[in-house]
């Protein structure tokens, strides 16, 4: 076996995946406990210097060393990025090694009665039963039933949530997508901060050829005088032409062809408020959303809809039922007991 193949298999081992998860957990833990340079100012030397000076004053001179060693930008720390890449590779290796079995389990299920007791399965022997009664009882419980006969022996297989074995693959794919999204956002995304006074126009830059215009800013108040909302009327210009315009609020950006214009702050000046807007281009956004939704679907299906199957062997004098489930399904034994009780009463 080549070294590359050995490394690939090693990465796909559950122990390696668990260790990587644990290391990611440690990194996240560190990232929570140490002050982190906000991503919006990482690329801005002047604002970075201001932030560091304030941080030094707040937390002491140790902050310099932490910054130099990359502890204040942990999301860009090489070891963290390497961990993410390794997690992605581990997930990929794990997925590729499992997909055949998961696919077979979902679409090509065996009708044979297991020759030996399988771990995690529960078996019960009942008096002889008509196949039709058993089929009806299983179908009533939401199982899809298939049957095959050989001589005097009938084998019956019933599956519920048969496709949920694929949920693990969906979850793994979601993790991959999230890592890809993180990479796309970090490498291809950008954010530009623009300060623009009332009636003024300021260029967005970044080769967009766009500019933003501040058409007015209002602050709404509650009856007690506290701030209810900030509303900025903003226009996005390409040359002299307005390509988009609207109200920008804290939870309401202005969107235009993959760009988002966000209200980040304002300061009072004679004649109106000077807006601080952030123009964001993030190609990882959609991928992250898709990854997040797939993750939710995968996790939910794994937890709530475990694939459970019953294999019955009906022969002269007895019926042997064995129930099994994918993963850890605590309801299997109870299901078998209830089924046996119901069939015994038939």
């Amino acid at each position: 076996m080549s070294t590359l193949r050995r490394v690939w298999r090693f990465l796909g081992r559950m122990g390696v995946a668990s260790s990587l998860l644990f290391l990611l957990l440690l990194f996240s833990l560190l990232g929570s406990l140490l002050p982190q340079l906000p991503p919006s100012i990482v690329g801005n030397p002047a604002r970075r210097a201001t932030w560091l000076a304030a941080a030094r004053e707040r937390w002491g001179p140790a902050i310099e060393g932490l910054y130099r060693w990359g502890f204040l930008t942990l999301s860009r720390f090489p070891l963290f990025v390497a961990l993410l890449v390794l997690t992605a590779l581990s997930t990929l290796s794990c997925t590729l090694s499992r997909w055949r079995a998961a696919w077979r389990q979902a679409f090509h299920r065996s009708l044979r009665f297991p020759a030996a007791h399988l771990p995690g399965s529960h078996t019960v022997t009942l008096p002889s039963l008509p196949a039709a009664d058993l089929r009806a009882a299983l179908e009533e419980r939401g199982y899809r039933v298939r049957a095959a006969s050989e001589g005097e022996v009938t084998c019956l297989r019933a599956d519920r949530y048969g496709l949920s074995g694929l949920a693990t693959l969906v979850t793994h794919l979601a993790v991959l997508l999230l890592v890809v999204a993180y990479g796309l956002s970090g490498w291809l995304g950008w954010r530009a901060e623009v300060a623009v006074g009332p009636g003024e126009v300021a260029a967005v830059g970044r080769g967009t050829g766009l500019a933003v215009r501040n058409d007015g800013f209002t602050v709404a108040h509650y009856p007690d005088g506290s701030v209810a909302d900030y509303r900025a009327q903003v226009a996005l210009l390409a040359g002299d032409r307005v390509v988009a315009e609207g109200v920008v609020r804290v939870n309401g950006p202005l969107r235009f062809r993959g760009l988002g214009v966000y209200l980040m702050g304002f300061r009072e000046r004679e004649g109106g408020g000077v807006l601080t807007l952030q123009v964001v281009h993030d190609p990882g956004e959609g991928v992250a959303l898709a990854g997040g939704l797939l993750l939710l679907a995968g996790v939910t299906a794994t937890v709530y809809l475990p694939h459970r199957w019953v294999i019955a062997r009906l022969e002269r004098g007895q019926t042997v039922l064995t129930v099994r489930s994918s993963g850890r399904d605590d309801g299997v034994e109870a299901e078998l007991t209830a089924l046996a009780r119901e069939l015994a009463g038939c």
Binding site: L33, P253, M264, Q278, D282, A288, L289
Partner: peptide, 13 residues
């Protein structure tokens, strides 16, 4: 993402 233009910002929480 809707409020600040980023879906993950390494906020401590």
């Amino acid at each position: 993402e809707v409020a600040w233009g980023r879906y993950w910002g390494w906020d401590p929480k």
